[in-house]
């Protein structure tokens, strides 16, 4: 019963949200959500998560599970050609959304669009970085197995 109430609350929130914003029909398909990413693929700089400068043995290495307070973080590092080529999140704290309170007064001014990849000719890139200690610990543990 309680679950049903939560479900209704979430649904009601989504309905309020959808009524409150001015929808523009997405012009292109939204990209699929993926938990695989390349945190070392920063265009103008180097990340510091690699514990040493040596080359690693090829393969996939599973890192330790680390408590990131809001959930567990566990990564798998893929080494190819002696280099870290990919990091997959086996666990990340995104799984359970909570119902949210929407401020209806502010929403009518907001607009929406589907995101679309653009030419990368920019001076500077703004994006979130992987500074979470849980991420670094799990990755360090994965990489220690590859050295």
């Amino acid at each position: 019963m309680k679950k049903m109430f939560i479900g209704i609350a979430v649904l009601a929130t989504l309905v309020i949200y959808s009524l409150g914003v001015r929808h523009e029909q997405p012009k292109i398909a939204a990209p699929a959500t993926s938990t695989t990413t390349k945190p070392l693929a920063s265009s103008n700089s180097q990340q510091s998560t690699q514990p040493n400068n040596g080359t690693y043995k090829d393969g996939s290495y599973t890192g330790s599970t680390e408590d990131a307070y809001y959930g567990n973080v566990q990564v798998q590092a893929t080494i190819s050609g002696g280099k870290l080529t990919g990091v997959t999140f086996l666990q990340h704290p995104d799984a359970h959304a909570n119902s949210i309170y929407i401020n209806k007064q502010a929403m009518p001014y907001l607009e929406q669009e589907a995101i679309k990849a653009q030419s990368a000719h920019v001076d500077i890139i703004s994006g979130a970085t992987y500074t979470s200690q849980a991420f670094i610990q799990s990755l360090t543990s994965a990489l220690s197995q590859a050295s």
């Binding site: 945190p39 990849a117 920019v122 890139i125 703004s126």
Partner: peptide, 26 residues
């Protein structure tokens, strides 16, 4: 020009901003 990184593919940007005497944080 400041590009907003695509959270689904960190090699891409999804928006380009013109920034003059401002701060941008993600």
């Amino acid at each position: 020009t400041v590009g907003i990184r695509n959270p689904f593919d960190t090699s891409q940007i999804v928006k380009t901003l013109r920034i003059h005497n401002k701060g941008v944080a993600t």
